[in-house]
Design a protein around this nucleic acid. Sequence first.
DNA 1: CGCCTATTTGATCTGATTCAAACAATGTGG
DNA 2: CCACATTGTTTGAATCAGATCAAATAGGCG
Lengths: 251, 251
Amino acid sequence: MPLSDALVRKLRSIGDVSDETAAALAELPMRHAELARDEEAATDGAPTDSCCLLIEGWMHRQKLVADGGRQILAFNVAGDIPDLQSLHLKHMDHSLVATTRCRVAFIAHETMRDLVHSRPEIGDLLWRDSLIDAATFRTWILMMGRQPAIKHLAHLMCELFVRSATVGLSDGNSCPVPLTQEQLSDALGLSLVHTNRSLQELREQGLIAFDGRRLAILDWPRLSDMAEFDPTYLHLREREDFDPAAPLDRH
Amino acid sequence: MPLSDALVRKLRSIGDVSDETAAALAELPMRHAELARDEEAATDGAPTDSCCLLIEGWMHRQKLVADGGRQILAFNVAGDIPDLQSLHLKHMDHSLVATTRCRVAFIAHETMRDLVHSRPEIGDLLWRDSLIDAATFRTWILMMGRQPAIKHLAHLMCELFVRSATVGLSDGNSCPVPLTQEQLSDALGLSLVHTNRSLQELREQGLIAFDGRRLAILDWPRLSDMAEFDPTYLHLREREDFDPAAPLDRH
DNA sequence: CGCCTATTTGATCTGATTCAAACAATGTGG
DNA sequence: CCACATTGTTTGAATCAGATCAAATAGGCG
């Protein structure tokens, strides 16, 4: 499959992309690369001149504090452009890191700018994508500030599964989630020990199965209920109430 | 002063706005309104058809959880368009509320869309503004997840002061911060009691003065140091290290 | 096998919450 | 202009969710 397929699939999950525009995306000049686990694609504080399109594998964004603590801000899957914001913010305010070994393609800002100006349709859609990014941050803030650990963890699992399923990365009720418990902790703002115990609680309640590679949703109604998961914030292209059992619209 | 002055000042704090574009902004058709304290300008889950430009007073964005808890996601001051995201996300994923009584102007999405398409310069700048919004959320996530209450509070005070100063709302080392301790708590994700004690600690250390109306920065170096405040995330128009004592570039 | 990374368990501690009440400030109507 | 109601702040005491410390166990992999 063409390398930009992941991108088109992603964009079609949040809006309309004409075949013509999809073809234009496939033609974009980009520099392909493979990143090792923990390799940085962009560094906090550094200037940037291109955006990183994630083609395969997982990435995450993170910030560090003085005492050595790390906060993970988001996880990204194939089709995402995790540092799209760099198009208009020339300096990184966080780092972009390969969670797993992954394949990426760097697209020069100049190329991106020409694209969004010559095709307002795609410009608006990318803007929309960056706004959904922000909506996701808002939801994380809510979970961090006003929910206990177990609900927060349940919510993250819901998010990761829905986002994966939406771009065709799920298989029935399960999807890849290649995260260590330490990475989960740093995303949730919890200690490793407490994250471990919260995970065990979700398992004991029969809500999920998770082994550091794959996540399986065992009881979506109870899991999403416990998490107070409302997918509105993902602003997916009109699809009523999300049901992971339902066949996905795969284009 | 023309009502769009606050907007132009805000946009000039993050990028270049030609006088011609500023004139175009002043001509935009908008519906003016006055909001009472706690009045909602946009409601979580509801569809939208206009953006809200804040002209005078403070607003904030919030989400609620089932047990009645509230999380404040951001505070907004004059010149901000707090629900700019609604331009491309048709349903609100949070509410926009008047923190104080305030003056606003609603600009129809149609008007906004024509503007950004006819003047890519302003479109890019608004996109940039929404990206700075997201960068602010990222920083909040970091503070919530990996910093203790007192540092988080100190950081919020730094942010509110810098953002106010940047758009000319500060007076020397102080600026209006019309927030109750309950609102601060809901922004920090802390209890009212703990917020109160953290505030007292900042006061006792001689870092700030705050009475629910105004915030005075008494020792910027020590305050910003304790908060690990790095204004990079605000992506202000090139101005080196922020120094609240320095005269502001007022255009 | 043996090393390294990741997960799990146990015990203890603490930052922050909750509950409860006093106190201060602000505003309102008589 | 005072009395009273309401909202916001402060204090104290008890409790708890989650952190920290320490060590054991389990997987992967060269």
